[in-house]
Amino acid sequence: MTKATLEHVNMTVSDPQRSANLMRDLFGWHIRWEGPSMSGGHTIHVGSDDQYLALYTNENVKAADPSFRKGEPMNHVAMTVDDLDALEAKVVAAGLKPFGHDDYDPGKRFYFFDWNAIEFEIVSYA
């Protein structure tokens, strides 16, 4: 059987730079690439050397007011961290609201929505 790893997730956002800055602050990631999208618009790849989020926008997206439609088509993106409390403090400092705190076997978690109504789950198994 071939082992697979997740290379990237491509998301449409209203402001890729703001979203990339949040990911850099929360996770210590870096901008891997930035430029015009092959479909028109602009994309920023932010992540580690092996995995990243592709943050895409175009003029139609920038003008839209994103609204929450959980599950259409994605429910959330989950990230693991070593220090859940430190990451939550960064989420709050960014002006975002954590919710759904839960201790479960084998870890702890919380959720937050970014400015595009994309839900993130933050998990710690430490």
Score class of each variant (00 low, 15 high):
103 D>N: 14
118 I>C: 14
81 V>K: 01
75 N>G: 06
17 Q>F: 09
109 R>L: 13
39 S>Q: 10
40 G>W: 09
71 G>R: 02
72 E>C: 02
90 K>R: 13
102 D>T: 10
30 H>V: 09
69 R>P: 02
18 R>D: 00
42 H>N: 08
15 D>I: 04
117 A>R: 06
103 D>E: 15
100 G>A: 14
108 K>F: 06
91 V>N: 10
14 S>K: 14
105 D>K: 02
60 N>H: 08
4 A>H: 08
3 K>G: 06
52 Y>P: 03
18 R>P: 02
74 M>R: 04
99 F>T: 01
93 A>K: 07
57 T>C: 12
109 R>I: 03
50 D>S: 11
16 P>V: 01
35 G>F: 05
61 V>P: 03
51 Q>D: 10
39 S>C: 05
35 G>Y: 03
87 L>Q: 03
79 M>P: 02
78 A>L: 03
111 Y>C: 00
42 H>W: 13
8 H>Y: 14
101 H>R: 15
61 V>H: 08
45 H>T: 02
79 M>F: 15
41 G>T: 13
25 D>F: 00
113 F>G: 02
44 I>D: 10
83 D>Y: 04
106 P>K: 02
32 R>N: 11
22 L>H: 12
30 H>N: 11
102 D>G: 05
3 K>A: 13
34 E>Y: 06
4 A>Y: 12
44 I>L: 13
91 V>A: 09
51 Q>H: 13
31 I>R: 09
28 G>E: 10
75 N>C: 08
78 A>R: 04
46 V>W: 12
79 M>W: 10
59 E>R: 10
8 H>A: 08
10 N>F: 05
54 A>I: 01
19 S>W: 00
8 H>I: 00
22 L>A: 14
65 D>Y: 02
62 K>G: 10
24 R>Y: 05
64 A>K: 14
63 A>F: 00
93 A>F: 02
8 H>W: 01
122 I>D: 13
105 D>V: 08
69 R>A: 14
14 S>C: 12
39 S>M: 13
102 D>I: 02
26 L>Y: 15
38 M>Q: 11
36 P>N: 14
79 M>Q: 05
89 A>K: 13
103 D>I: 05
94 A>L: 09
88 E>D: 00
15 D>E: 13
11 M>K: 08
116 N>P: 04
84 L>N: 07
91 V>M: 11
24 R>F: 01
14 S>Q: 11
53 L>Y: 10
118 I>L: 15
65 D>C: 10
38 M>F: 14
51 Q>P: 06
26 L>I: 07
25 D>C: 04
44 I>Y: 04
25 D>K: 09
